[in-house]
Design a protein around this nucleic acid. Structure first.
Length: 244
DNA sequence: AATGACCCCAACCGCCAGGAA
DNA sequence: GTTCCTGGCGGTTGGGGTCAT
């Protein structure tokens, strides 16, 4: 494969597929300096790649515990359910699938599930496993400020009336957050969605971002899963149970 | 065996948010 | 308050592999 080049005032930036040698250099660099400081990585590793390319290569391919190969049925079902809930928030969805990257999930969705979902739209299956909300009504988080009014609207999210205290979000435990989200979505039947879902739909990006820390670790702590509320304490089975 | 169509997925691109200066 | 830099995300592309003819 020919490797496109891009000339910058800093020199020639390589583009295209990564070679074995480049992978080794990048891996060594991350091993030595750790993740982060991506702008320094090309220099440290001696790679003629841009920071973004290095980061992407590491996250999607070189990082330890990356799970490759076919998605298992339960993973697929979880993707379908979470996509229903979160929309195209691939990083969040991937965060719930140990070893899978956002790119993997996105690719899988675009190549397999998108077609499947579109087919389902045309000829809905009565036994459709997804019961969350109105059919095909993705609960897409919208950017909003977390206002007092918002707190009232999202009060369903928390049975402990902690939502009146923004700090309480941090204290709210992971399971409760998911339990509330899923409990509210699962009980909604077709037609009821518009009445019932508003609160569900109002899950904005702020709320998503206030989701358990597990959502934001890009799967790292999930893979590490050692104490501190990692995957060990909030397993796939837990999500599975909630979703069911 | 040749070739065209289709599919998969790694990689790129553009945009945005957050933090520092 | 503004600008710049960096990290991160989602959408899209295109090369290579596979399948059908």
């Amino acid at each position: 494969m020919s490797t496109p080049m891009m000339c910058t005032f800093l020199g020639v930036i390589r583009k295209g597929s990564w070679t074995e040698e480049e992978d080794i250099l990048l891996r060594k660099c991350i091993d030595k300096y750790g993740e982060g400081k991506w702008h320094l990585v090309p220099t440290r590793a001696g790679l003629n790649r841009c920071r973004k390319s290095c980061r992407l290569r590491w996250l999607n391919y070189l990082r330890p515990h990356i799970k490759r190969g076919d998605f298992e049925p339960d993973e697929v079902d979880l993707i379908l359910r979470l996509h229903k809930l979160l929309g195209n928030r691939w990083s969040l969805i991937a965060g719930r699938l140990p070893g899978r990257t956002a790119n993997d999930v996105k690719n899988y969705w675009n190549t397999n599930l998108l077609r499947k979902v579109n087919t389902t739209k045309i000829a809905p299956q009565p036994q459709e496993v997804i019961k969350c909300g109105k059919a095909n009504a993705i609960i897409r988080p919208q950017p909003q400020k977390f206002t007092s009014a918002m707190k009232i609207n999202v009060s369903w999210c928390n049975n402990n009336s902690m939502v009146n205290n923004e700090e309480a979000w941090k204290d709210n435990n992971d399971m409760q957050w998911w339990a509330n989200i899923l409990e509210n979505c699962n009980d909604i039947g077709e037609g009821e969605a518009e009445r019932t879902l508003p609160s569900c739909k109002e899950i904005n990006s702020n709320e998503i971002d206030k989701t358990p820390s597990l959502l934001h670790d890009g799967g790292n702590s999930i893979q590490q899963g050692q104490g501190d509320g990692g995957w060990n304490e909030f397993s796939l089975d837990d999500i599975w149970n909630l979703l069911n």
